[in-house]
Nucleic acid binder design. Structure first.
Lengths: 228, 228
DNA sequence: AAATTTGAACTGACTGGTCAGTGCAAAAAC
DNA sequence: GTTTTTGCACTGACCAGTCAGTTCAAATTT
């Protein structure tokens, strides 16, 4: 397992995240399309079964590609998985940051920013449920090859929430007694688990509906009878 | 696989939970001790590596027992895992229920009850971190043999939270607009993720400290400067 | 109370199957 | 004509589950 590829002369198999097409303007080479198909196949299967229980043959078959192609494009099963993780969390972090920035541009408060991020999180989980399942399943494991990748990738996403909280404290909108990292974790957990339960047990509910329920909790509009 | 044992005339290998020692009064047989050792070994390994990546040989070795003993005590690797799940969540649900009931006896409000349950959850996770990791990792998977076991077991724990919320709504302490199941999920997620991040990234922090931070969030004491 | 029997509990070598990864020649795509 | 994909046979390691045999404490016999 150690020596990786090296042998089969031709393939680059570098771990760069994207681009690097020939010289074409658009970018998207044939190879990129194949890799995308493999990501999609792998994310579903691994979310359902877990990494170890998912075979490379299955991934290839689901992607409609020969097994050799998997190894032409990725150095190993683990590398495919790691790149998949980076790819997915990159999307999430960008989406969260975008939501926070838009709120700021529109002159919203920090609570508004948090609320917008909750919604962005829900939209992401709604669009990529398999990725989310897989992320949750692997995040708190120890002794795994991609442990460090996960840490980096996690921090990327959580940091966006922490930044908003910190700015809120500095601006006097939030109590300076809140514990920023822990509160950020708790908020992420709230959205994550609520969304996964939504997908698993009440998939027919609308995103707006779920978002409303979480907003209420986030803004402490829980106590009190009538219209809280 | 199907016919199970039968042959070796002697061994029962039934999946009965306990007792049935010779005639001894106490109860706790040798077998029970062995099963306990196997639970402990399995929970750690599976939390670290996942179910599929953990071999029965590893479990046996860690438990200081021969592989055959695993199969003498459990019908299969999956069955061992399922019984482990039931065993663990049973403990959690009991602990949560106990916390809620004690608060009620002491004349506390429903918010107090929720707060007590948050603490009970933290204590549980602190005591059985491996079990918690394993639970989170398997909960939202699909197409797994123990899917139904997990559903039952999840509901057992979440229902306790839902009950308190529902009672709070009926008693007028909580808004009747809250979405009970979803809010319960969100609360569980909040505690779960905050606690796992605590264990993973700041294990030196005290439970009281973490509990205080979550209490603040739970009670909406986040907004506002100074002492919120 | 020593000798014998019983059987639940345990052992570990073994088996049959599975799977990650390789190698390569020929085809297809670009 | 170069890059990428295909198809398929092959290897070597690994692993769930099996089973014939061992252990030993308690029960029974003498």
């Amino acid at each position: 397992m150690s020596a990786a590829v090296t042998s089969r002369g031709t393939a680059p198999v570098t771990i760069r995240a994207m681009e690097s097409s020939s010289t074409a303007p658009g970018g998207s080479t044939r190879r990129e399309a194949t890799r995308q198909k493999l990501y999609e196949a792998a994310v579903t299967l691994i979310a359902e079964q877990g990494f170890s229980a998912t075979t490379v043959d299955e991934i290839a078959e689901r992607a409609g590609v020969a097994k050799g192609t998997v190894y032409y494009n990725f150095a190993s099963k683990s590398v495919l998985f790691e790149e998949l993780l980076r790819h997915g969390v990159g999307l999430l972090a960008a989406s969260l940051r975008e939501a926070a920035e838009k709120t700021a541009r529109d002159g919203g408060s920090k609570v508004d920013a948090l609320d917008a991020m909750v919604r962005a999180g829900l939209v992401f989980i709604d669009r990529y449920p398999a990725f989310t399942q897989l992320y949750v399943a692997e995040m708190w494991r120890t002794n795994r090859a991609w442990q460090s990748t996960l840490m980096v990738v996690r921090q990327q996403a959580v940091a966006v929430v922490e930044d908003v909280l910190r700015e809120g404290v500095e601006g006097g909108e939030f109590s300076d007694e809140i514990d920023v990292p822990l509160t950020a974790s708790a908020l992420v957990g709230m959205v994550l688990v609520a969304a996964l339960d939504w997908q698993s047990f009440q998939p027919e509910r609308s995103l707006d509906d779920v978002h409303a329920a979480l907003s209420r909790l986030l803004q402490g509009r829980v106590s009190g009878p009538g219209r809280g």
